[in-house]
Design a protein around this nucleic acid. Structure first.
Lengths: 235, 235
DNA sequence: TGGCTCATGTAAGAGCTCTTCACATGAGCT
DNA sequence: AGCTCATGTGAAGAGCTCTTACATGAGCCA
């Protein structure tokens, strides 16, 4: 009763032709359905229409497939963040907030990548290329923080950009992994994850002395205006 | 060559007597070693010295065992946070920071619990008791935020306590899961996770208008003293 | 065109896990 | 003493991971 498999083979010949890509795609789909833990090498093979042994021609391991996905994820993540940052245009604070939104958007729209990247429990020393890709993604946040730190108001010691970057990253990751994904999002929130993160970052930046209200802060700032606060209007 | 097993049985008789507890403990140990994903039902049975089928008398599933652990984790977590909070003594801000430290300490000292709680990919609707335990733990943070919000300086619209609680939680979870655990901690940081989180929370609170320097803020605050900032001294 | 070679796929199998079943044991009650 | 039922066992099916030996055919070279 394996006419199904026979037929598939008839359609595409003995050689698949693009198995590596097909496996990566299949794995993404499977992770989306069943989570990074539930995904199975054999399942990916089945989905690609090849025998369970075929994937071993392209990936040493189930883990290597997973870390390939994570690596790609970091690359796309970096691209998304970099595009959102857009080198700080039109102004640093606006661009910075856009980065936060892009972070959440990625976590929401690419949950498979996100969980391969952060929740797959891969030994971090397994794949140097993976680590490097992660570093590059973080570098975008760090560069943005650098620029932001340079705008810090005088009079107060300037916050270390590295620290700011780590803070922003931890907020983003915290919101993303607690509230913005799959059934974790079932917790009933008083606001959307995006709003939550935006408020969080705004409050944080204000704590650093930034005037985060009028947005255009790069020079001519209207500093103190009794701001409405980053949380909506009181009812 | 199974004299080993025979001997164990001789020691403890046909019935284990406390298998459920033994399994939970074994699972914790295994998760600590190999991560929540790598842990195996059969392994736990072996470690407890019983046959692979025995655990099924106590847990419907591998997942049910995992969620039992997560539930216990939340209970201990709640206890740890509540103890740290100590009903806001000696003053709200100090106690609040203690909660943050307790959060990280738990993540660091009980990584098995922490990953069962937050990284095991359990369907959140699987176990109502689990969800309830999670809620109770969060309630501690929320209660603390409530008290803190009540101290918010006048003149600015008071921040919603729920939002503050979610913010604090996301920061804590973000720092914990990115920097304070296992080989994720291999990222070379300019400061310890504890310091990182403390600074983050302090900056955040300052952004809400709290004077977070002299600590005693509940009444007689020395408000403005050109604070050194929550990041150490500039070198 | 014919023939080589090697990357890519397959089949079969060992060893593992999960889970279920019928059956064994003995702790605690009557 | 005898019953009963919770608790543990052994065997077995189904699935997964990964290895090994073998099959196929695409690309190259003459």
């Amino acid at each position: 009763m394996s006419w199904r498999k026979e037929q598939r083979r008839a359609e595409r010949g003995y050689h698949h032709g693009n198995l590596k890509e097909a496996l990566l795609q299949a794995a993404l789909d499977l992770i989306a359905q069943k989570g990074a833990a539930g995904f199975t090498f054999a399942d990916a093979a089945r989905m690609a229409g090849v025998s369970p042994a075929a994937p071993y021609r392209h990936f040493r391991d189930r883990d290597e497939l997973l870390s390939s996905i994570a690596q790609r994820g970091f690359e796309q993540f970096e691209a998304a963040l970099a595009q959102a940052w857009d080198d700080g245009r039109p102004d640093t604070v606006t661009a910075f907030e856009r980065v936060g939104k892009a972070y959440l958007a990625f976590a929401r729209e690419e949950p498979s990548f996100y969980s391969a990247m952060f929740e797959s429990g891969l030994p971090s020393d397994a794949n140097p290329a993976l680590m490097a890709a992660g570093e590059r993604a973080f570098a975008v946040i760090r560069a943005a923080a650098e620029r932001l730190a340079a705008l810090a108001p005088p009079g107060v010691p300037r916050p270390p950009a590295m620290m700011m970057a780590l803070h922003i990253w931890s907020m983003s990751h915290g919101v993303a992994s607690l509230f913005a994904r799959g059934d974790a999002a079932r917790r009933k929130l008083p606001m959307s994850p995006d709003e939550l993160l935006e408020a969080e970052v705004l409050i944080y930046l204000r704590g650093l002395g930034f005037a985060t209200d009028g947005r255009a802060q790069d020079g001519k700032g209207q500093a103190d205006e009794k701001p409405a606060g980053p949380w909506g209007k009181p009812k």
